[in-house]
Amino acid sequence: MTLLTEPFHYAFMERAFVAALAVGLLCSTMGTYVILRKLAFIGDGIAHASFAGIVIAYLRGTNFYIGAGIVAVLTAVGIGFVHRRGRISLDTTIGVLFTGMFALGVYLMSQQRSYAVDLQSFLFGDILSVQPQDLWLILALSVVVAAAVVVFFRGLLYTTFDPVVAQASGIRSGAYEYALLVMLALTIVVSLQAVGIVLVAALLVTPAAAAYQLTSRFAPMMALAAVFGALSTVGGLYLSYYVRASSGATIVLLATLLFFAAIAAKYLRRATARAA
């Protein structure tokens, strides 16, 4: 029991666990859309592009959530615009935009004298450094995105499954796509401090992919993804505390482990169904 409660003796660990729980639930819930709409590359792109915003905010001395948030949302809307209107392929656009924005961030960072430590924490996350005001931002943005998931639930489901027929019936598929991209951008920003730019894509994809193995309906998939996501982040944070490893990496490794366990469970279930 002390093993479980020991980390909570520190206020920064308490904040880290609350942040981990919020990030785990949010990323994996949005991950359901990421998987079913095949947005994994977009998520990765938004995360990398937001690095430029982080650095600019850092240099100006403002909260990095504001810088990352503005750049992430603009990138998401830009990607949506190109996707709907553009003559350049989406893959190409994201590839160009996200590496370009990321390079801009690295360029600005490299002009500073002491950048090595901070760069590392942005790339791979540093959930133990979450300050009280960070935590409030994380929670507020999580509530906003979660509320949007609830309010837009039917429209997002229909336009994810069949955007053309949904549009013909009077549901604005384009508006839902933009809304989803903005929600995705906010989710990524919320997760940056916890798991970092490089690993946030894993949290968007892996828990939902694991849930996809085990269910054939949408709402259960989302619920199961949220459970896997929270298990990964909270469990990963615990593990990292005891094995003294990077929290972001441990979280992603645990999520990956859950994914393979889900695949194993799926085949096991099939085998027993066949035997019965």
């Binding site: 489901l157 069949d162 949904a166 949408f218």
Partner: peptide, 12 residues
């Protein structure tokens, strides 16, 4: 897509 026949018809 994770949906049953009922789920798809309900989208209507």
């Amino acid at each position: 897509f994770p949906a049953t026949v009922w789920d798809v018809v309900a989208m209507g």
